[in-house]
């Protein structure tokens, strides 16, 4: 059976659309099972726009092809025999357009994306209770003390399990008992994207000054991280930092030369 030129072109558009809508997520699902990474709606629209343009260009590029397409249209819209199909198509297109219009004007909300820098640039120095800390030169004073290392890690563990594990979790995976009550979610220390990429001085600053100590781009108004210098001594904070690295097996990021 010979399929008409127009239907073939419409099929090409449909197949291209299916590739964007289903094929791309399927590739993602193959690469990472259990996921289904959809293409954003505005991108789908953009692709579809270009696909239709290309198909139109292709159809119009050849005089004979173009006249066949026009003939198909003339037949579909004009032939008395195609009345039922014609009426059904017109009703379907009109209703789809009406629904699209309703969807566009109905009241809806889109929660603003709460963009924030997860590890914002730290200040070069900060002070607590009159004591100045220069982050460019600050080092964990306990790391060099090999003799008391095990004891410091143990002390850090005890502090973690009295203060931090409620949110950062028993496994240090950021999934503690109250983690899902807060936003942004508590940091997962086992992930290579957190403490493994940060210097110890950065951790000291984040722990000591907490959520309210974040710069504006870090969203200080929503972080539930306490201002730990109000609860912990300087030594205790360094002990916790030792514990975080020791337990996860990560090494702190080295200082840039």
């Amino acid at each position: 059976m010979r399929v008409s030129q127009t239907i073939r072109l419409l099929l090409v558009v449909a197949v291209a659309y299916a590739i964007v809508e289903l094929g791309i997520p399927a590739i993602g699902a193959l690469m990472k099972p259990g996921t289904w990474p959809v293409v954003p709606v505005h991108l789908v629209r953009l692709y579809l726009f270009f696909i239709v343009i290309v198909i139109l260009l292709y159809a119009a590029a050849d005089e004979e092809r173009w006249s066949r397409v026009r003939g198909d249209f003339r037949f579909f819209f004009g032939a008395p025999g195609a009345r039922i199909a014609r009426t059904a198509t017109i009703v379907a297109i009109s209703l789809a357009g009406g629904y699209g219009a309703y969807d566009a004007v109905r009241p809806r909300f889109e929660t603003p994306p709460e963009l924030r820098a997860v590890h914002p640039a730290p200040p070069s120095s900060f002070s607590i209770g009159g004591k100045m800390y220069d982050l460019l030169t600050l080092d964990n004073p306990l790391r060099a003390d090999k003799q008391n290392f095990a004891g410091d890690v143990k002390a850090g563990a005890a502090i973690f399990f009295k203060q931090c594990f409620f949110c950062h979790g028993d496994k240090l995976d950021g999934r503690g008992l109250y983690a899902d009550a807060f936003h942004p979610p508590p940091a997962n220390f086992r992930d290579i994207g957190t403490i493994a990429q940060l210097q110890e001085s950065y951790l000291f600053w984040r722990i000591a000054t907490g959520g309210p100590g974040l710069p504006r781009e870090g969203g200080p108004w929503m972080s539930s991280m306490p201002v730990w210098h109000r609860f912990l001594s300087e030594t205790e904070i360094w002990q916790v930092i030792l514990f975080l690295y020791d337990f996860t097996g990560h090494a702190p990021r080295a200082r840039e030369p």
């Binding site: 249209f73 003339r74 819209f77 004009g78 008395p80 014609r86 017109i90 009703v91 297109i93 009109s94 209703l95 357009g97 009406g98 629904y99 699209g100 219009a101 309703y102 566009a104 004007v105």
Partner: peptide, 23 residues
Amino acid sequence: VPVAVVALLAGGLLGVSARMRRA
């Protein structure tokens, strides 16, 4: 707004169809 869109689409398509039938 949806009613106007439905009317415009249906009117336009029916108009085209009527013209082609005459043609």
